[in-house]
Design a protein around this nucleic acid. Structure first.
Lengths: 127, 127
DNA sequence: TTGACATATTCCCTAATGGGAATATAATAT
DNA sequence: ATATTATATTCCCATTAGGGAATATGTCAA
């Protein structure tokens, strides 16, 4: 198999820098039509429309017709899974990080020492 | 062009479900050797090694040699850009999604109340 | 050394990506 | 009706992704 379809996975949808830009632009000023996005992104219109389709398919944006324009609106809710996933690393990089790391390395040294006499167990060791 | 190389972009690196699994596994228990990952992921060893290489290239993991094993350690810091990017939608979650059933969480009522007293900004014309 | 184990790399393959160009569809104006 | 504007879709193409299989590299043990 190749990679997971971008049209079915939020993580893939936002893996595209251009699509993140679009999301950013939609994030402030709730509505934007395609032409405006084209101008800001300096990308050909078909390309923008294609990215928008991907974002639509994963539910990250919704469209409303306004005359001949299509007004895109961000549906931030769909970013929740990403947020949640990232969230559970929060504790690892805040102020606790140094302490945890140190503790882990201390433990690693102990394990390493113990392991010298009774090898075969996995352990951390620097180099 | 195809998409930005996964080896140069964190967002692409974590777009792969398997790689997120690896990151998850590394998140608890700082060191894991490849064999252990292979067992947990139920994925052929070469596949795992390849994913690990990607994660290495973007700096999300580091390796330490321990005999014939390679102990992988998570470098959470590299997730910061993702976290930061997601973070500036936090506001929208709070303000814009207040009315949406965001939760069985206790904050739901508070948010709704706040939203009533400080009503919304511009919205899209529906349809 | 030989052999077993742990990990990485290479080659091959199919599927999917994203841009470009051209075209299709839709709405508005004249 | 025709023209013009706004957006979407299609076709083509070079690039890449990621799994499978085989192989290479590295490390330990007897």
């Amino acid at each position: 198999m190749a990679r997971a379809a971008t049209t079915s996975d939020i993580f893939n949808a936002i893996a595209e820098p251009r699509r993140r830009e679009i999301v950013d632009l939609l994030a402030r000023g709730y509505c934007r039509d395609v032409s405006e996005l084209v101008r800001k992104l300096k990308l050909p219109q078909p390309a923008v429309s294609k990215h928008l389709r991907v974002l639509r398919k994963v539910g990250l944006v919704t469209v409303h017709k306004a005359g001949q324009r299509r007004l895109y609106e961000l549906n931030v809710d769909e970013l929740k899974p990403v947020h949640d996933w990232i969230q559970h690393f929060e504790q690892l990089w805040t102020d606790h990080l140094a302490g945890i790391k140190e503790a882990a390395e201390t433990t690693a040294r102990d394990l390493a020492a113990r392991n010298r006499s009774a090898p075969g167990q996995q352990h951390c060791s620097k180099e």
